[in-house]
């Protein structure tokens, strides 16, 4: 018996994408008329928009879905859009295991039935020093984690991407140890911001963006957001995340966006917002410091990069 059926109507059918973009422009223009609004009101609007800065313009759909790091389909930015058609995002199962009260192989729809999808506009900052602004559609991670009921021993959560070289031809090359693994501390996962994403721009998530289920953690570098997730594991120990395993001196476990901690290859002080020519300063925690800095009180963020 199906517990939950995917809705017959897409949110894109309810609100046309152009209308909803213009809604943002309307709110944005309100915010832009700075003299009329107090700082508090501007912040309130920014919160409504889901971003910290009303000046953040949405990155166009073509760029969000055409410029991707998803090495399972190749290392070039346009490889995922060109080759991800081999991925079959339905039917999809997610195995939940480890320190959790309800371990099982869940059908994706059963996972999605645990919460309500909502739209969040987040800045997306890649460790390669480029960034986007993306209107994601997803369920807050903490809603799903709460429903899965981690045990008191659970301290971390680990996300594993599909491993299937037939569906993901890039996995035939050994450039990274497959499958791709990422993780969070449990209190990070329980923060309101992380999203288990199922869509973008009001449409189902395209394969190249990590269909059918991916993680988005807006205050961390993009590689923390595992794509095409097939396993969620609750652990007592810090998960070994793939990039950290591949290059421990370049990529840490925390990977919080931090302009003060340089990557050996890229300065993290500034970033290029795709669509712009000049770089702009990178904000601590990608501009979400007000919400998340409390998670790291007393921690040396240079050592735990």
């Amino acid at each position: 018996m199906p517990i939950h059926r995917s809705p017959d109507i897409r949110s894109a059918d309810i609100t046309d994408e152009r209308l909803y973009v213009s809604r943002r422009e309307f709110l944005g223009s309100l915010a832009g008329a700075g003299v009329l609004l107090s700082a508090g009101e501007r912040r309130a609007i920014a919160r409504m928009l889901g971003t910290a800065d009303p000046a953040d313009k949405l990155t166009p759909w073509e760029v969000v879905t055409g410029y991707n790091n998803f090495y399972e389909f190749g290392t070039a930015k346009d490889d995922p859009a060109a080759y991800a058609a081999t991925l079959r995002p339905r039917p999809w199962k997610v195995r939940v295991e480890g320190e959790v009260a309800r371990p099982a192989d869940y059908d994706l729809d059963a996972i999605l039935a645990m919460g309500t999808a909502e739209e969040r506009v987040y800045r997306h900052r890649c460790v390669e020093a480029w960034s986007m602004v993306v209107p994601w559609l997803g369920i807050p991670l903490r809603t799903i984690v709460s429903r899965l009921e981690p045990t008191s021993r659970a301290k971390y959560i680990e996300f594993t991407t599909l491993r299937d070289p037939v569906q993901m031809p890039g996995q035939k090359s050994g450039i990274l140890p497959w499958p791709y693994v990422e993780g969070l501390r449990l209190d990070e996962a329980m923060h309101p911001l992380p999203l288990l994403v199922t869509g973008v721009y009001g449409k189902p998530l395209p394969n190249q963006n990590g269909a059918p289920l991916r993680l988005v953690v807006p205050w961390k570098y993009g590689f923390k957001g595992g794509k095409s997730i097939v396993k969620i594991r609750f652990t007592t120990r810090q998960p070994a995340n793939t990039w950290n395993v591949a290059a421990p001196d370049e990529y840490g476990f925390y990977a919080n966006v931090n302009p003060a901690v340089d990557h050996p290859r890229w300065s993290q002080a500034r970033e290029r917002r795709l669509g712009e020519f000049y770089k702009r300063p990178t904000l601590p925690f990608n501009g979400y410091g007000e919400q998340v800095a409390g998670l790291y009180v007393g921690m040396d963020l240079k050592a735990n990069f």
Partner: peptide
């Protein structure tokens, strides 16, 4: 045409 895909998503790169 700033919306065109000329020079890709990151023209400087």
């Amino acid at each position: 045409d700033p919306a065109s895909d000329a020079l890709g998503a990151d023209p400087v790169k």
